[in-house]
Nucleic acid binder design. Structure first.
Lengths: 99, 99
DNA sequence: TTAAAGTACTTTGTAAATCAAAGTTACATA
DNA sequence: TATGTAACTTTGATTTACAAAGTACTTTAA
C-alpha cells in the first residue's frame, strides 16, 4: 500500500496557511487587514504565515494605497493555485480510500 | 464574515494523525506495524501520535496475540468518527466557498 | 543455551513551528 | 504635538515533532 499522506503538502499542514489560501482562491485580492480580521489573528502571526507562503512562491504582494493610507494586498500565484489544488486532490485521494 | 478555519479540529492539523484516522475509517482494526509501514514512520513517532489520538478518545487499543507474538491493534471510536467527519465537513465548508 | 530478532513502547534530546506581545517605520489626522 | 493606523520585524516563551536510543518481554535460530 502506498503512503496515504505522502502527497499532502507540508506547507498546508498549518490551518492558518490553509485558510489564507482558501480565501485567496475565491478573492482576487485581499488586504492584510481583511485577512487579519477574517482569520482572527495578530499582526505578527499573520505576517509570518504570509511570508512563508510568499517564500514558497504561493502568493504575491502588492503594496499600494487606499486614498493616502498604505494598503498591502495579497493574491495567489499560478504556482500557489496549483499547489493548493494538488493538496486538495491529495486530501481527496486519502479520503476516497474510505469508500 | 465568519472565520473559515474556526471549525477545523486542531488534532487533525497533523498529517500523521490525519493519516491514521483515514486508515482507521476504512479498516476496522489495524496493527501498530501496519500503521508504521503504511505511514512510513519510526516507532516512537507513531506511538506518540497514537497516544495523542487515544488521549482525545478518538481511538482505542486492543492488545492481543498473533500466534504467540504480541499484537496491538487500533480502532476508531464513535467519538473519533464523529470528530473526523466534523473535520472533513469543516474542510469542505472552507473550500466550498470557492465556487 | 546463549544470541539475535521482533513488538510496542518510553525516554531523551534537539530542532522546528507557533504565537503573543512589543518594538519599528512611515505616513496621516486631529 | 500627539495620537492613530498599516504592516511589519524582533523577541522570547511554549508547544510540537521527530529520530535515536533504551526497555521489557517473548520467540526463534545456532
Amino acid at each position: 500500500m502506498i503512503n496515504p499522506i505522502g502527497n499532502l503538502n507540508k506547507i498546508f499542514d498549518s490551518r492558518i496557511r490553509l485558510g489564507v489560501m482558501s480565501i485567496l482562491m475565491v478573492n482576487e485580492e485581499v488586504s492584510f487587514n481583511d485577512l487579519k480580521q477574517m482569520l482572527e489573528l495578530t499582526d505578527g502571526n499573520l505576517a509570518s504565515h504570509l511570508s512563508t507562503l510568499e517564500e514558497n512562491g504561493y502568493l504575491k504582494v502588492h503594496k499600494g494605497f487606499v486614498g493616502r493610507k498604505t494598503n498591502t494586498t495579497y493574491s495567489i500565484t499560478k504556482a500557489g493555485e496549483k499547489a493548493f489544488k494538488g493538496h486538495l486532490a491529495a486530501l481527496e485521494n486519502m479520503i476516497r480510500s474510505m469508500e
